[in-house]
Design a protein around this nucleic acid. Structure first.
Length: 253
DNA sequence: ACAAACGTGCCT
DNA sequence: AGGCACGTTTGT
């Protein structure tokens, strides 16, 4: 399940009939033009004004079709951790509350590091991660951001997990996107990794057309900075920090 | 063939 | 560390 969501802002005319092949779709020709309706600052500062929460919870048939093209192959078989994965975070948050009420979700204290970093969570960073996350915190999640680490929630690889998730689940999520084949492995060849399609940048449908990658596309051959997959930003093969605040930790690069 | 974009090395 | 350029891989 991968619902295309344009975190960048309100739907543009382009987006109205665009999302069928996102996130792995090549850029539409219209996106190559630089008359994008939103400025770079819009990407940076706009706090999720037009996220269709109702649509995220109950996608319309059209949205479902767009998000799940007929030829699309699921990246992996649905598994129970998917219960924690949501574009909106709404039902996972609701589920978390219900579980906590029922005493089924362990409440583990956050580390001081996490707590400290959590206090900085609204600060933008160079990659735009902070601003990307703001919609989750400010609008999409009905809970305080600090509640998640406190409740044992952590995020990694585009997935949420609870403290109740065992090592198996963690390992599976940590390893995701780093299949032996994609890492080169025994072949020794330089294999391309693929974007996860699930992280916030991957969910973006539009290029900002203003970042250095967009402006320098002809020679740079790079995807828009704000669409660069979080997974691909990390070096392949290394351990992935699965902390909710991983993007604030340089060690996770 | 072509476009998109990942990987990597160099430069600042 | 980040930007840039280019080789290369991958999908259409």
């Amino acid at each position: 399940m991968s619902t295309a969501v344009d975190i960048a802002g309100p739907s543009s005319p382009n987006q109205a009939h665009s999302s069928a092949k996102i996130p792995n779709a090549p850029l539409r020709p219209s996106l190559k033009r630089s008359n994008h309706p939103y400025s770079l600052s819009h990407y940076i500062s706009t706090p999720s004004p037009a996220v269709d929460v109702k649509g995220l919870i109950q996608p319309s048939p059209a949205q479902q079709r767009a998000a799940q093209p007929a030829h699309a192959k699921p990246r992996r078989a649905p598994s129970w951790p998917d219960m924690w994965e949501s574009p909106s975070g709404l039902h996972l948050a609701h589920a978390a509350e219900l579980l906590m009420r029922a005493g089924l979700l362990a409440l583990t204290p956050a580390t001081t590091e996490q707590a400290g970093l959590g206090a900085q969570s609204s600060q933008p960073d160079s990659s735009g991660c902070g601003t990307d996350f703001q919609p989750f915190l400010g609008a999409w999640f009905p809970f305080s951001p600090t509640l998640f680490p406190l409740a044992g929630f952590q995020m990694g690889g585009g997935h949420w997990r609870s403290a109740a998730m065992g090592a198996e689940g963690i390992e599976g999520l940590v390893a995701e996107g780093y299949s032996p084949g994609s890492l080169g492995g025994s072949s020794g060849g330089r294999r391309k990794r693929k974007r996860c399609g699930e992280c916030v940048p991957c969910r973006r449908q539009t290029n900002c057309d203003q970042c250095s990658s967009c402006r320098n596309r002809k020679r740079g051959h790079q995807i828009c900075k704000y669409r660069k997959c979080e997974e691909l930003k990390r070096k392949p093969g290394g351990y992935q920090c699965v902390s909710i605040f991983r993007w604030r930790q340089k060690c996770c690069k």
